[in-house]
């Protein structure tokens, strides 16, 4: 499908290509600078020049010199991310299957999810904080912050599943049923494997959105901070390249999970593609 309006050598392609490159530079440039500066030597400061390259500020992160609880908050964020991921996948996939029928009240539910997506996250945190205070309930990262984060990840998961299901051929499902599969078997052996690349996408969103979440978490996280909350607090107090070191570390975790998920999706699609070819040939 060639949809090109402008040929490869046209002026428009060159100009927009140049603009696109500038945008990518703008997107990655600052990150690259803090990546470099996080390897600053022990005597170096928060700006250039780099005195010498060392891992000094990374070690510093996990030493007693830093008032922040880096390793603890890092563990909590990973666990919370996995919890949010599991719940987001389960709840949004099942709900999206429900939305395939135009059931009574589906409009209200849909707009509820949209409101959840576009509501300034900070207000959710504030409202929940008020409820907890009035009922005298204590907030923790694995209860209240978990719930608050779900109001952000679930609508995302739902929208991705809508896009995936829009391309899903329902005749496959009917074929399975005609061949005598129970509805559980149809689900387990036909629907879920076909949806798996999309579901992995939902999992990626669930994990990374939770792992970086601040506005919804901020007032309901309780005494033990998650990593982004800890980093936000550090921006006020920490004036050494350790701030960049933590930035580099957390970005590495994010990028690793994206790469892992994208490879997983690619593999599943390849496998689905080859099994379809195999079945059409036989």
């Amino acid at each position: 499908m060639a949809k090109r309006i402008h040929s490869k050598n046209s002026l428009v392609t060159y100009l927009l290509g140049g603009f696109f490159s500038l945008y990518v530079l703008f997107l990655y440039g600052p990150m690259f600078i803090i990546f470099l500066l996080s390897f600053q030597g022990p005597t170096g400061g928060m700006t250039f020049p780099i005195q010498e390259y060392s891992l000094h500020w990374f070690k510093e992160l996990f030493s007693d010199n830093i008032a922040a609880d880096v390793s603890g908050s890092f563990q909590r964020s990973i666990i919370l991310g996995l919890m949010v991921m599991t719940l987001t996948v389960t709840i949004s996939v099942i709900a999206a299957l429900g939305f395939r029928r135009n059931f009574k009240g589906s409009g209200i539910m849909f707009y509820g999810a949209i409101i959840s997506l576009i509501m300034p996250g900070f207000l959710i945190s504030f409202g929940m904080g008020l409820i907890l205070q009035l009922l005298d309930i204590e907030s923790t990262w694995y209860t209240t912050a978990l719930g608050a984060q779900l109001t952000w990840t679930l609508p995302f998961g739902l929208l991705i599943m809508f896009a995936v299901l829009a391309r899903f051929d329902r005749s496959v499902e009917e074929a399975a049923r005609d061949l005598g599969a129970t509805s559980w078997q149809t689900m387990r052996y036909v629907v879920v494997p076909l949806l798996l690349p999309g579901i992995t996408g939902v999992a990626l969103f669930g994990f990374t959105l939770s792992y970086d979440e601040i506005p919804r978490t901020t007032l309901v996280v309780g005494d033990s901070n998650t990593l982004p909350m800890e980093i936000l607090a550090m921006t006020n107090t920490l004036t050494t390249p350790s701030l960049y070191a933590i930035g580099t570390l957390t970005t590495v975790v994010s990028v690793a999970s994206i790469t892992f998920a994208l490879f997983a999706i690619k593999r599943m699609q390849d496998r689905l593609g080859s099994s379809q070819i195999a079945s059409s040939e036989s």
Binding site: I91, A95, G112, I124, G127, M128
Partner: peptide
Amino acid sequence: SWIQVTPLAIILLGFLIAPLLVI
């Protein structure tokens, strides 16, 4: 369908609608 969207509805009611009403 309603059974399938119930978990979503519960989360939205508890963590979105209720906080907004309290505000």
